[in-house]
Amino acid sequence: MPLGTVLAASGPDTVASTGLWTVTVAALLLLLAIDIVLTRRPHEVHMREAVAWSVFYLVLPLAFGAYLWSAFGTTVAVEFFTGYVVEKSLSVDNLFVFMLLLTAFAVPAELAQRVLLYGIIGALVLRVVFIALGAAALQSGTWAFLLFGAILVVTAAKVLREAVKGGEQEVDIDSMRSVRLLRRFVPVTGDYRGFRVVVREGGRLAVTPLAPAVVAVFATDIVFAVDSVPAVYGVTEDPFLVFATNAFALLGLRALYFVLKGALTKLRHLNHGLAVILAFIGVKLILHWAHGLWAWVPEIPTLASLGVIVAVLATVTLTSLRPERRAVR
């Protein structure tokens, strides 16, 4: 059964027809195939290449949003753009963790883009699963809004608590159960062998460090999906829009990583802003649930949500960069 049919059948009404679902998924697979072809030869990504692809993946959602605007009206387009901004901001935080993982595993620069591509594909697969589960939960009753809202508020408190503690974020590879499990059953070589994941060494099969690096990225993808999918469902209940915002936000991550690699460590207040955004959307979901029970409870319009999210991101970016300017002076 086609992906769009599965998601549409498991959740609320969607603006997308089966044809639009098919075209969107086909375009996504084509773009992933192009990425796989481009990364088949190990090479270090230079800034010009990264910027060019980042611009391309920024123009794509803008063009898609313009199509939604002309085909389905302002409300659908605003929901898409708001969801995209939310997902993109969360994805930047994901990039920081990916950077730490690549450093911890000492992934060579020429192999980094392939590891990131594996991570993006894994994230897309996991998002599809979580989107389908979320759509089914919304279909079963309004309690799902309360559940999603509670998840986001708790996540926001956790992110804010870690941000307030300060200090550099660390990733303990040895504490990851998935990595420990892999190393327990399969020997790992001491060096990378290009894109090869499995090699024969000493007469037995072994995996290269590329395998635990990819496993670690997949493991973090699960954590990211838990808060990102409910966050977008706080903007729109349409499974197609949730899928589209996730897909467009994830597609450009590989190129964006190399563009922002030097700037990621300077965005010291990013987690503070993400905590505010997650808490805001969580409250929005809880108010939406309460409005279904008590009509006098106010709801937050999507356009107002977009304004708040953009304002928060702009604020934390400015406050993060000001100390850098002072240090330069």
Rank of each mutant, 00 (worst) to 15 (best):
residue 266 K to N: 11
residue 236 T to W: 10
residue 257 Y to T: 09
residue 244 A to C: 12
residue 233 Y to P: 07
residue 265 T to R: 14
residue 268 R to V: 15
residue 213 A to V: 01
residue 256 L to P: 01
residue 240 F to N: 01
residue 233 Y to G: 07
residue 212 P to N: 12
residue 223 V to L: 15
residue 209 P to Y: 12
residue 229 V to T: 13
residue 250 L to S: 07
residue 248 F to W: 06
residue 244 A to N: 07
residue 262 G to W: 10
residue 228 S to L: 08
residue 211 A to T: 03
residue 248 F to Y: 13
residue 220 T to E: 12
residue 252 G to I: 06
residue 246 N to K: 04
residue 224 F to R: 07
residue 221 D to L: 04
residue 249 A to E: 06
residue 266 K to P: 02
residue 220 T to A: 13
residue 267 L to F: 15
residue 270 L to M: 13
residue 223 V to T: 14
residue 241 L to T: 02
residue 270 L to G: 03
residue 207 V to F: 03
residue 259 V to P: 03
residue 246 N to P: 09
residue 257 Y to R: 05
residue 230 P to H: 05
residue 233 Y to Q: 05
residue 255 A to Q: 05
residue 212 P to I: 13
residue 247 A to K: 00
residue 264 L to R: 04
residue 263 A to K: 02
residue 269 H to I: 02
residue 266 K to F: 15
residue 266 K to Q: 15
residue 207 V to S: 08
residue 215 V to P: 03
residue 220 T to H: 03
residue 240 F to C: 07
residue 253 L to W: 00
residue 225 A to V: 08
residue 210 L to M: 13
residue 231 A to M: 06
residue 220 T to W: 04
residue 236 T to M: 13
residue 260 L to C: 13
residue 211 A to P: 01
residue 243 F to W: 15
residue 238 D to C: 12
residue 254 R to M: 09
residue 206 A to N: 08
residue 264 L to Y: 03
residue 248 F to I: 02
residue 251 L to Q: 03
residue 252 G to C: 04
residue 208 T to A: 10
residue 234 G to K: 02
residue 234 G to E: 02
residue 206 A to C: 12
residue 252 G to N: 04
residue 261 K to E: 14
residue 254 R to L: 09
residue 223 V to K: 11
residue 253 L to R: 00
residue 243 F to K: 06
residue 241 L to N: 01
residue 244 A to T: 13
residue 251 L to N: 04
residue 258 F to G: 00
residue 218 F to N: 05
residue 212 P to Q: 14
residue 259 V to Y: 08
residue 260 L to E: 10
residue 210 L to P: 06
residue 232 V to L: 12
residue 254 R to I: 09
residue 242 V to T: 14
residue 251 L to D: 03
residue 225 A to M: 04
residue 227 D to S: 10
residue 269 H to V: 04
residue 207 V to I: 07
residue 259 V to C: 14
residue 241 L to H: 09
residue 267 L to H: 09
residue 251 L to W: 06
residue 252 G to W: 03
residue 255 A to C: 11
residue 262 G to Q: 10
residue 243 F to Y: 15
residue 221 D to C: 15
residue 217 V to A: 14
residue 260 L to G: 11
residue 267 L to R: 07
residue 216 A to E: 00
residue 211 A to Q: 05
residue 253 L to K: 05
residue 260 L to T: 07
residue 256 L to N: 05
residue 232 V to R: 02
residue 250 L to M: 12
residue 237 E to Q: 15
residue 260 L to S: 12
residue 215 V to H: 09
residue 245 T to R: 03
residue 241 L to F: 10
residue 234 G to V: 03
residue 218 F to Q: 04
residue 256 L to E: 01
residue 240 F to E: 05
residue 258 F to H: 14
residue 237 E to A: 14
residue 257 Y to D: 02
residue 237 E to V: 14
residue 238 D to F: 13
residue 243 F to I: 11
residue 220 T to G: 11
residue 226 V to E: 06
residue 227 D to Y: 12
residue 220 T to N: 14
residue 223 V to E: 13
residue 227 D to C: 03
residue 224 F to I: 11
residue 234 G to Y: 02
residue 251 L to K: 06
residue 247 A to H: 00
residue 227 D to R: 01
residue 206 A to I: 12
residue 251 L to I: 10
residue 240 F to K: 03
residue 236 T to H: 12
residue 240 F to D: 03
residue 261 K to D: 10
residue 233 Y to E: 04
residue 250 L to H: 00
residue 222 I to C: 07
residue 246 N to M: 15
residue 262 G to V: 10
